[in-house]
Design a protein around this nucleic acid. Sequence first.
DNA 1: CCCTAGACTCGGCAAC
DNA 2: AACCGCCGAGTCTAGC
Length: 245
Amino acid sequence: MPELPEVETIIRQLREKVIGQIISKVQISRSSQWKLNDADEVTEKLIGKQIHRIRRLGKYIIFDFSDGGVLIIHLRMTGKLIWSDADVEPEKYTRTIFHFASGGTLQFNDTRALGTLVFLPPGDVEKYSPVLGLEPLDESWTLKALRERIKNSGLDAKSFLMDQKKIAGIGNIYASEILFRCRIHPERKINELTEAEIKSLYEQIPLVLNLAIEKMGTSLGDGEGNFRSVYNIEGEFQKLIRVYG
DNA sequence: CCCTAGACTCGGCAAC
DNA sequence: AACCGCCGAGTCTAGC
């Protein structure tokens, strides 16, 4: 499952390959994953768009085009973005392929097909903006801001960490790992933690996420959820994980 | 089991 | 003052 470190790994690798590139063709084989767009229309509209910037918001991947439009992709459970320098044919679980003028291709593969894609032309950028909580790797990540979020929540600690409206980017694997390192039981009520425990969360959350980014993410299990980077290789963080499940 | 969005429930609150 | 109605927080479920 791609969580913040996996998505960050993906966008960093994508930057090396697709900044400045121009889309020459888009092949959509599962149009229902384009949430706000008609498949034929978006295929047409994306041609000629140049990728100016790539960024991450929580677990969302955002491509900014030179004209101000954006493409927003969420990988959900099993989505993968795979880069190839050469042309490729769609495989069984290929849902959309982006072809670039350089000859390279970016495949969006997704076994469960729960991932989402949204294209917003320059004027419509406001039409879709996911509601997300604190970004653990931003300057906005402060002990005070975390305490403020915790204050009015009756969730248990693990649910709190995984709630994207509270903190953006954490899922099952990193929530478990962070709580283990903080010695906090996952079912403890978040608003009943001691000040020392909140402080520990405040420190461990960015620490664990940054460590996982250094290791290019976590590839656990052999099934459909197993993370692969843009170059179709596994991450290394599972070697450092201290708890599983 | 653990990704999200939307529909739903619940409880607190408000009045001049 | 709460028979009302809004809001925020939490729960449940569909989607493939």
